[in-house]
């Protein structure tokens, strides 16, 4: 079924978050006003990207990043006309032109730049196709999305949106136990690290903001990025004054309460 919508309503960052959490495999197609981007993922990691008609063969990517001079690029184009990217990559490595790491690093740079361009799109239809995988003959990478998610979240500036996401600063933060959420591999700013260092179910976000000398907008923005990247979650602060005692039941007696719930269950089952 459909994972589709408009970027106006659901941002690229949120999509990356979703793909990351669900470890999705497939291709995200985004139709912007001027061009269409296709971003492929494997098990929640970035594998491949292309945008519009932009030439994205390996030779061109290496040329653009100055790994191949204009001359070399010409030569490669002539000799390697019928080669796939994978074959060309191997040839270049074997000829000692470039290492495998450098090839992957250049592809990573190119693909992530495409995603950074998408961050600036305010409008565009997206859909996620489970069945479309990156072309076999292209070189794929495997890049964790957390850093891109945090980067994208930093661009969400409007206080109003952030207030929707984090309505109260009286909640505390805790690290998620989601397997694979790895703080070590994430590039955090100094301020973000400062917040991270105060994360503890005992500290409310308000206290963290005070301790880290951040205003409400700043703390919300940082927490939002960490939330989006799936690194932390909101919890009720330990030791905070219990929220005013809620009277859920018309009786104080535990057993009567259970009986009451069971009566409700029986009634609804029989409906």
């Amino acid at each position: 079924m459909a994972l589709r919508g408009n970027l106006r309503d659901f941002t690229i960052t949120q999509l990356l978050n979703l793909i990351n959490l669900a470890r999705k495999t497939g291709t995200l197609i985004v139709e912007g006003p001027n061009e269409t981007a296709e971003i492929a993922f494997r098990e929640g990691k970035l594998a491949y990207a292309k945008i519009g008609q932009e030439e994205n063969g390996l030779a061109m990517i290496l040329h653009r990043s100055k790994q191949l001079s204009a001359n070399q690029y010409e030569v490669v184009l002539q000799r390697a006309e019928s080669m796939t990217d994978k074959e060309l990559g191997l040839t270049l490595i074997n000829a000692g032109y470039i290492s495998q790491e450098d090839i992957l690093a250049n592809l990573q740079q190119y693909f992530t730049d495409i995603i950074r361009r998408l961050f600036t799109w305010v409008e565009g239809f997206f859909r996620f196709e489970n069945d479309i995988l990156p072309q076999e003959d292209r070189i794929n990478i495997r890049l964790d999305l957390e850093n891109l998610i945090i980067e994208g979240s930093r661009q969400l500036r409007e206080l109003e949106q952030l207030q929707d996401e984090i309505p109260t600063l009286e909640m505390a933060l805790k690290f998620t136990e989601r397997p694979g959420a790895n703080l070590q591999s994430v590039n955090l700013s100094v301020e973000e690290w400062r917040v991270v260092s105060f994360i503890d179910p005992k500290n409310t976000m308000k206290q963290i903001a005070n301790a880290a000398k951040l205003n409400e907008l700043e703390i919300r923005r940082i927490v939002f990025g960490l939330l989006q990247a799936g690194l932390v979650e909101l919890v009720r602060a330990e030791g905070a004054p219990a929220p005013k005692p809620v009277r859920m039941f018309p009786t104080e007696d535990r057993e009567e309460q259970k009986t009451l719930v069971n009566r409700l269950i029986g009634r609804i089952r029989s409906m």
Partner: peptide
């Protein structure tokens, strides 16, 4: 999400 967080803050129900 916002409604959810708001309710969660009012009551641990």
């Amino acid at each position: 999400r916002s409604i959810l967080e708001t309710f969660r803050a009012y009551a641990p129900t």
